[in-house]
Amino acid sequence: MISIKGLKKEFITKDRQITAVDHVDIDINNGEIFGVIGYSGAGKSTFIRLINRLEEPSAGTITIEDNEITNLNQNELRIARQDIGMIFQHFNLLWSRTVAENIAFPLEIAGVSKEKRKKRVQELIDLVGLTGRENAYPSQLSGGQKQRVGIARALANKPKLLLCDEATSALDPETTNSILDLLVDINEKMGLTIILITHEMQVIRKICHRVAVMENGKIVELGDVLDVFLHPQQPITKKFVHQAMGNDEDENISSIMETNSEGTLLKLQFIGESANQALISQIAKRYEVDINILQGKITNTKTGSYGTLFVQVTGNDSEIESAIKYIQSETSVEVEVI
């Protein structure tokens, strides 16, 4: 487990003092993908760099397993860093080294023998899907491929923790998806804990288990990704959820009601697992009703699906009523008659 307590970072410039990270307390579980989201300037980049002390904290403690990172001297810190992988927005590869040599770099630092190095590098190249590009130089690779090299390099010494500093922000959406898939893959295969920071809610939605929302150096909201998506509390969180979902359904309800005055209009809210069931067709089979889907959106998050459907149910009144009762009692879908 990673335990962060009272973490604080102040920058002192000539004319003022800036608190980039302000009293952050978080516990991160092993094997978890933990996301921190915030706009630029929120302090998230400083926050992730405090974890491996690329920035020195002004106050607070960071404990990874039983190792208090904030208490280590420079030499101990160097050793500890070999267990913490990190990937960067701009990849930060050595252009003077080939793909294989870049990946071998952390192994050289850790003093791994040449034979073992070669074997491990090949494993990593296969893992990140760069087989055949071993001897290419970074300048010959695409952005996505460069990040794959970055990931392989970060994983070379089999770390327990991977820090991702805006790792997909310089990539196009499709490449972002493939890199996110790779991160999920290594998280599941190797049980690696991942802390990532991003300004894109899509990234959080796709791969994170839990999310912290950061604003002005403080964590303003923290919870399971699904909960945060369903019940965002803070205005900034609502903005991020909106960014990922495009929540404009509410505006259109009145026009839906006008054009579909027949039958009963239902608003179905899907939370978690239930979106995987074939709810609509089940109701249509069980009861003598017709269901017409008017509008809606269902989105998958790492811990389940969530979204809203507006449906028009026509048929016998009593059948409609029992259909509604069925949804309420047998499924976790929230139903509302409009």
């Binding site: 491996n52 690329l54 160097r78 050793i79 500890a80 860093r81 070999q82 913490i84 990190m86 960067f88 701009h90 930060n92 590869l93 050595l94 252009w95 003077s96 080294r97 770099f105 952390p106 050289e108 630092i109 850790a110 390099r153 010494n157 820090l163």
Partner: peptide, 28 residues
């Protein structure tokens, strides 16, 4: 590139390693 030096630090490189394996080869 400062980022490359930072990446080397994040891997746990000594100053000597950073000089001889990062700074000099990258500026060759």
């Amino acid at each position: 590139d400062k980022g490359v030096i930072e990446a080397a630090k994040s891997i746990g490189a000594k100053t000597r390693t950073i000089i001889f394996k990062v700074i000099i080869p990258e500026s060759l």
